[in-house]
Amino acid sequence: MASFKDTLKDAVRQLSFKTSLDSLKKKGVQQVSVLGLDRIISLIEAAVHRSLKSRLVGIEREAVADATKAEFLRLLRSNEDLQRQKSEVEEARERAEDEIDTLRRELTQNNQALQLKLEQDALALATRYEGENAEIAKKVAAVVAGLAQTPGATATTVEQRLMELVMDVVSGERQSAEEARRALHDREVDNLQRRIKKLNDNLAATEQRLQQVAALKDVEGGISSVYREVQGLATGDAQVGKKKELMGEIFKANLKLQKKDKPGA
């Protein structure tokens, strides 16, 4: 019985709320009446016993009292289970939401990194080409200047020939270098794109899971009935015979209405 009292105390404690003296003063409360927890428990027990005493006698009363206490404890446990399940579902939902946030952030960062990389590559390529061209032109000019001092050669002719020669060589090299760079660049882009795809798949899967969790949360657990099994008329009922007859008539009317009185139905 002590454990029942303790449980009752815990239940009353859980249902109570705390407030400070300052907040009570702010609300204009000057004095408070205090009712101890033990007194509340005693009152509940006394009320239950008085109610039972007025309706039942002897052993039956004790049996009902015990059954009521057992049922109270069962309902309390059932309530605790539901609370726990609710917390678990909420935790799962919060975890899924955190995961989605992280994945979204990673996806954004990777997209930004890819964009930056592409821009940097384009800029670097243009700068490098300009530098190489200037270098080549400088070299060619030096060669032409040397040839100009040589008798019998036309400067323009020599310059044209040199330029054609150099540019031909440079183009070939440039092409092969370009191919090598493109291969490297493609690999990087490919890696980034694969990573983005993977993140997108993860995001979709997590979102689906979140939806499932949310759907699960919408389904309320419901409230347990006080009965474990079908009851039927109590044999001690003062009008049991009459009531049995009435139940039979209601049933027959419903059987007829629901067409289950047909053979084979």
Binding site: Q231, G232, L233, K243, N254, Q258
Partner: peptide, 11 residues
């Protein structure tokens, strides 16, 4: 509550 179990079962 008072309806017997077999009546419920049949429906």
């Amino acid at each position: 509550h008072d309806m017997p179990a077999d009546f419920w079962e049949q429906l």
